[in-house]
Simulated assay, not measured.
Amino acid sequence: MRALEVVETGPLALVQDLGRPGYAHLGVPPSGALDVPALKLANRLVGNDEAAAGVECLFGGLRLRATTSCTIAVTGVAVPVEVDGRPVGSHAPVWLAEGQVVAIGTPVTGLRCYLAVSGGIAVDPELGSRSRDVLSEIGPAPLKPGDVLPLGTPSLPGGADVVPPTIAPAELVVPVEPGPRAHWFEDLAAGLAKTWTVTAESNRVGLRLDGPALTRGDDYAEKELPSEGLLTGAVQVPPNGLPVVFLADHPTTGGYPVAAVVRRASLPALAQARPGTLLRFHSSTKVWNR
């Protein structure tokens, strides 16, 4: 059996692919890798289809033993990678012999690394995806020591052999567009452009921010909102005025106003934002209040 055996997991290790979009009507979030380009790159480096399942590793600490020869690649932010204690580096394909152990250290910056293996992680899919959804608890459970991850049939690697790792910045400027309830807030563009701090309560459901609270206009100060549909990147503002930026495991509906929406191209950077990261929203759109 081609497989990887889990030796250690670090704070959190999850099987993820590109998710299960299209099930919002069932109350199921899209889920999938938060840093999509990183998972796609890891799969290309080992010869997989970009949609193959790999392991999303939060803040390092993952150790896996190969039960068969295979090729692995670790991407995401820069991180030490060792095989049987020997440094091999990230962002490049690495061959493992049967019995060898690959270990991912602590990333220099950012949060999440992605390990792909030739053939992909072949656990049973749910609703067409092998991704773990931490909100709905759909998909394979978080990894634990002793788990055995079956692998699919490998193909020949192709594409780039080595890719420079990325460094997660300490401050982000995040492009946004006005949300459906932008008009509920006073001087929203200026408020969002102030400096926010990513808090430790953030997770795959959303980034929680701390900073100067956003203020509703007088006409909306006490207004209640029926639940509305949500999408990844929605910037929702609860009564305390501190925004939550929803990520891949977000709820499919919510009852607080969505003031803005993050552009899809910026979502991978949010996936790597550690607690303490500074963040400012920016938009070239001049019309924010309707």
Rank of each mutant, 00 (worst) to 15 (best):
P239M: 00
E186L: 13
P80C: 02
L151G: 02
G152P: 01
D147W: 06
V7C: 10
E224D: 15
R20T: 04
W288A: 00
E126A: 14
A3N: 08
D35G: 02
T195Y: 02
A271R: 00
P226N: 09
P226C: 09
G47P: 04
E171V: 09
G61H: 04
E126V: 15
V15P: 08
P140Y: 08
T153E: 14
G19C: 04
R208G: 09
V28H: 04
T71H: 09
Q272K: 01
A248N: 14
V198K: 07
Y220C: 10
L12I: 00
Q236F: 09
V258D: 13
R274K: 14
G32H: 07
V174F: 11
P145E: 05
R132L: 12
T199W: 08
L41E: 04
K223A: 15
N48Q: 12
A168P: 06
V174R: 02
L172M: 11
G99Y: 01
P29L: 01
P251A: 01
A190N: 12
G159L: 08
G60E: 01
A13N: 03
V123Q: 05
E171F: 11
P29N: 00
P107E: 02
L115H: 12
G217L: 15
C113Q: 15
I121M: 09
R63V: 01
L192W: 01
E201S: 15
G89V: 08
L214F: 13
V173Q: 15
P180N: 11
G105H: 07
L149Y: 09
A260S: 11
G27Y: 03
D147M: 14
T253L: 00
E50W: 03
R264L: 07
D17L: 01
T71W: 09
L34V: 00
T199N: 10
E228C: 08
L149N: 06
P239W: 03
L45V: 02
V198F: 05
V237I: 14
G47W: 00
L188R: 10
T109Y: 05
S266R: 10
G32R: 03
G179V: 05
L151Y: 04
L270E: 11
V262K: 11
A260I: 05
L115T: 10
T9N: 06
L149Q: 10
D210G: 15
T68G: 11
